[in-house]
Amino acid sequence: MTRYIIQRLVYMIITMFLIATLTFFLMKLLPGSPLASADKLSEEQQAVVLEKYGLNDPIPVQYYNYMVNLAQGDLGISFQFDNREVTTIIMDRIGPSMQLGIQAMVIGTILGMLLGLVSALYHNSPLDYTSTFLAVLGQSIPSFVFAGLLQFYIGVKLGWFPVALWEGWEYTVLPTVSLAIFPIAIAARFMRTEMLEVMGSDYIVTARAKGVNKFGVIIKHGLRNALIPLITVLGPLAIGLMTGTLVIENIFAVPGIGEQFVKAINVNDYPIIMGTTLLLAFMFIFIILVIDLLYGVIDPRIRLAEGE
């Protein structure tokens, strides 16, 4: 097991290196200048500013310098926020995004699973139809529509929760709910399908025949088996949510990283683009590793490298 993890970590470093290299060169293909007022300066004046950021060097030299700094954990300073360190900016911004993402995932998964479970257990009943209908609705309507509706009706009309901004726990409620709709829908649909399949299999029938009560079987055998495909889907979804969603962050004025990333690309803020890409890539790879390990915990049949 330890060996497996070490092996995976080595792969992670190689992947990160490749991603950094690829992003660096792709980013240099972005049209336009990183200067804020390139339209107002003569070429000589622009050159003076670019010199300060080392952008007059040949691209291979810039690449070498970047990678050397990166290896030392230095992501450089931002262009659009003069002199501010990329690490600081990302750390400032990732917090709210992750908090919303995690809250939405936890709520979304739990509610979604319950919804799916109910559907499966009361298969073809009105309850099943209702929850399936809700799941389809949740999956097909974009989250910003929900966000807009929640903001207007719950925030403005009812005044139950703050309309927007980010100043405390109550401010996370509406964005979390908006973000949770999609995981709810996904989890519910997967849960329903998987449970239906699992509950019909021989070992469940056997367990029931042996007199184990219905809920014991569901929790101990059914749920556990139904979780595997769910985790496969939810892992990447979790990353998507935790790394910030531009639209929800804009609607609720959340100071998250999603909006920051998009803006950096628009204004050619190279260090921020690099830093954010690397962070997202790292989180992605890391979660995939966690998921692979989780499979083993959930399903003994695929416990990795055990007993070698």
């Binding site: 479970l117 309850l127 005044g159």
Partner: peptide
């Protein structure tokens, strides 16, 4: 389970209703 379902439902419904209540107590 029914209770949980009811809660879930109410969340969806809350999103789609409430248009008539025009209080501005959020100020």
């Amino acid at each position: 389970l029914l209770l949980v379902l009811a809660l879930v439902l109410s969340m969806f419904l809350a999103a789609c209703s409430g248009g008539s209540d025009d209080t501005s107590n959020s100020t």
